[in-house]
Design a protein around this nucleic acid. Structure first.
Length: 669
RNA sequence: GGGCUCGUGGCGCAGUUUGGUUUAGCGCGCCUGCCUGUCACGCAGGAGGUCGCGGGUUCAAGUCCCGUCGGGCCCGCCA
């Protein structure tokens, strides 16, 4: 047998079960931990599927045992041997469920101790006892440190069941082990900077610097596998629905609209640059003009803007476009896609169709267009009742065209002065100048500002916010945008902080009926609310000529648990309407020609009505994995400053390379 | 572009407020030895630190000041 074939594994480390006992098996993997008992050595062998305990016993193979002496964490091993049943958990005794308290507190009562010694004096517990809770209220591991003995305790209907044995109920493979008769150390390893296990407390930059070790952790392997499954589910679904996967260029033209482009210098054309796609928007529309009918692509997109915990310089979208389709068609396909991905990759049941919420209603009730609807605390408008109140902050704001809105926080009566100060600082980041509050107590309203309001005003506030005795009402008075931001983010902040959110819930929600244009106060002109090629609803199309601000677009966003996960629209496919949009936006024919010439030209050669959408893969995986940080679901993410912690990209290039590109670097920057 | 925050053995932290009894401490990990049933093994012993970097104040700086680099969160930005 060649070396290569002799190392071929028969199973993955997570595969073996009791039914395999008696057979032989060969495993490859990394050593999670080695436990040397002098006479016998245990090691937990890990690969991406799980862990199997391997035993090096000199009575089985003296040579393997001798080699195992040198084995350390993260060594790469090949082992073969017999799959052996572990000693089953020997039932030791039953105990009353009342002893749960002993276990929870880790302080064993004399009565609990005597249970052990009454069974058999050899089980007498020493003074040094460690209790580890495996599952709260259900399973514990009790270790008698001095006697070096371990007991598994389970809470079942009959009470606590205590057993002793070598089965490890924590491992899927815990009923067997491998009695090793042959060991090859395939490679040694330096001591890892942190242990390869879940729930480690290690700074993110350390994890990123050693990402190849970090990714070995079971949770990370799970994420990588889920990401793969999500992409696979999407591909299969789109294929079944008749979509063609087509690649579009990574090197394309810079578009001055929108986010900053990531630029790539051209060697053939000094001073000219390619841009990496912010999305394949124009190409996918051209594919519709090209008769492709239904297109999709798992597309890498690039936006050179500062990152956030849910934003990266490069990210992945499931880019979709379909011809002869309207809003309902796109939403239906997307709902099916979400159902398929979340159920297949995340094992998360999804009910379709999704609710549709008009943009203005979302803004009014939640302060933004990506509401987390897993909890209440909705925003309520009090502008009408507060207009003639004696609280000058409110009255003056309202007199100058502002707004007063409020939310009620359940159980917020216990907020201290400092809590409220902290929350005031929190809303200040959204430019709110203050945060007024009134507590609702059993005795009535309580706050320094109660005297400025009539009872009727406060009762109306209570009725509208739904505040109950024991709650607190927070008010913000300002320009509508500030009120929406401040209270919207305060709602989210408190929802998380006060544990009002059911983490197991997935609330999918369409946001629809967006305006087509947004008025830019400073520059005194309209701007596209989304992009230049978004179509208008048929009903509001005539307003293009009369009142552009009131035109509704055929744009839609899909929101889940506070994250925008898809964004799309029915596109403009008629030249005359596109022209009107350019006119309203004051884009001159010369500009149109130079920026979108090819696109406008194509539009005139028989463009079918078409519509599309782009679900964000990263955010979907974040949601399914319950992660709040996008870096957790990307194999090799960049830091907040856009650096690759592993390769240190971007890097300085040679003078020769720069010269070829006709680029001179300003050394001061 | 801006605000906040962190940086102390391999990792996680304490010490910095008010400069000096701290020889910079603790837990984990690591190394050596012992141990045949552990799975967070145990026991005994041991090694390991330019306190991010540079400058300054001072008799004296991990601690105070200035600058700088790096990580994170957020605002702006992200059609």
């Amino acid at each position: 047998m060649s070396q290569e074939s002799s190392l071929k594994r028969t199973h993955y480390c997570g595969d073996l079960r009791l039914t395999d006992a008696g057979t032989t098996a060969q495993l490859n993997g990394w050593v999670k931990r080695r436990r040397d008992h002098g006479g016998v050595i245990f090691a937990d062998l890990r690969d991406r599927t799980g862990i199997t305990q391997v035993v090096f016993d000199p009575q089985i193979d003296e040579k393997a045992h001798a080699i195992a002496d040198a084995v350390r964490s993260e060594f790469v091993l090949n082992v073969s041997g017999t799959v052996r049943e572990r000693e089953p958990g020997e039932l030791l005794l039953h105990a009353d469920a009342a002893y749960q308290k002993d276990l929870a507190e880790g302080m064993l009562s004399p009565a609990f101790r005597s249970l052990f010694s009454d069974t058999d004096t050899k089980y007498t517990l020493s003074e040094e006892i460690e209790v580890a809770t495996r599952v709260e209220g259900e399973r514990w591991l009790l270790t008698d440190v001095e006697n070096n003995r371990t007991y598994h305790i389970e809470n079942e209907e009959a009470g606590l069941i205590i057993y002793q044995g070598t089965v490890n109920p924590e491992l899927d493979t815990g009923e067997i082990e491998i009695a090793v008769d042959s060991l090859h150390i395939l490679n040694t390893a330096k001591t890892p900077p942190f242990p390869v296990e879940d729930n480690i407390d290690v700074a993110e930059d350390i994890r990123m610097r050693y990402r190849f070790i970090d990714l070995r952790r079971p949770e990370m392997q799970k994420t990588l596998a889920m990401r793969h499954k999500a992409a696979l589910a999407a591909r299969n679904y789109m294929n079944e629905e008749g979509f063609l996967e087509i690649e579009t260029p990574i090197l394309m033209n810079s578009t001055p609209e929108g986010a900053r482009d990531v630029l790539v210098p051209s060697r053939h054309y000094p001073g000219r640059f390619y841009a990496l796609p912010q999305s394949p928007q124009q190409f996918k529309q051209i594919l519709m003009m090209s008769g492709v009918d239904r297109y999709f692509q798992i597309a890498r997109c690039f936006r050179d803007e500062d990152t956030r915990s849910d934003r990266q310089l490069e990210f992945t979208q499931l880019d979709i476009e379909m011809s002869f389709a309207d809003t309902d068609d796109v939403l239906a396909v997307t709902e099916g896609l979400m159902k398929r991905i979340f159920e297949e990759a995340g094992d998360i049941p999804v009910q379709t169709p999704f609710l549709r919420l008009p943009y203005h209603e979302s803004m009014a009730r939640f302060g933004n267009d990506k509401p987390d609807t897993r909890f209440g605390m909705e925003l309520t408008d009090l502008s009408d009742v507060m207009a003639d109140c004696d609280f000058q902050v409110f009255a003056r704001t309202l007199a100058s065209g502002g707004q007063v809105k409020a939310i009620a926080v359940p159980g917020g009566e216990d907020f201290s002065r400092k809590d409220i100060d902290d929350l005031t600082a929190f809303v200040a980041t959204y430019r709110a100048k203050g945060l007024a509050w009134v507590k609702v107590t059993a005795e009535g309203f309580s706050s320094g500002i109660v005297k400025f309001f009539t009872t009727e005003q406060l009762e109306t506030a209570q009725a509208r916010t739904g505040a109950q005795p024991g709650d607190i009402m927070f008010f913000v008075a300002d320009k509508p945008k500030v009120v929406a931001d401040a209270l919207g983010y305060l709602r989210l902040h408190l929802g998380k902080k006060r544990n009002l959110i059911d983490e197991t819930q997935y609330n999918f929600l369409w946001i629809v009926d967006y305006p087509l244009f947004e008025w830019n106060e400073e520059e005194n002109r309209y701007e596209p609310f989304h992009h230049l090629f978004t179509g208008a609803t048929e009903a509001t199309l005539p307003l293009l000529d009369t009142d552009a601000g009131k035109v509704q677009s055929q744009h839609y966003d899909l929101v889940c648990n506070g994250y925008e996960i898809c964004s799309g629209s029915v596109r403009i496919h008629q030249w005359d309407i596109q022209q009107k949009v350019f006119d309203i936006l004051n884009i001159t024919p010369e500009e149109v020609e130079s920026r979108f010439g090819y696109f406008i030209d194509a539009l005139a050669y028989g463009t079918p009505p078409h519509a599309g959408i782009a679900p964000g893969l990263d955010r979907m995986v974040m949601l399914m994995r319950n992660e709040e940080n996008i870096r957790e679901v990307i194999a090799f993410p960049k830091s907040q400053q856009g650096l690759c912690p592993l390769t240190h990209a971007p890097s300085v290039v040679s003078e020769d390379q720069l010269e070829e590109l006709s680029i001179r670097v300003d050394a001061d920057n």
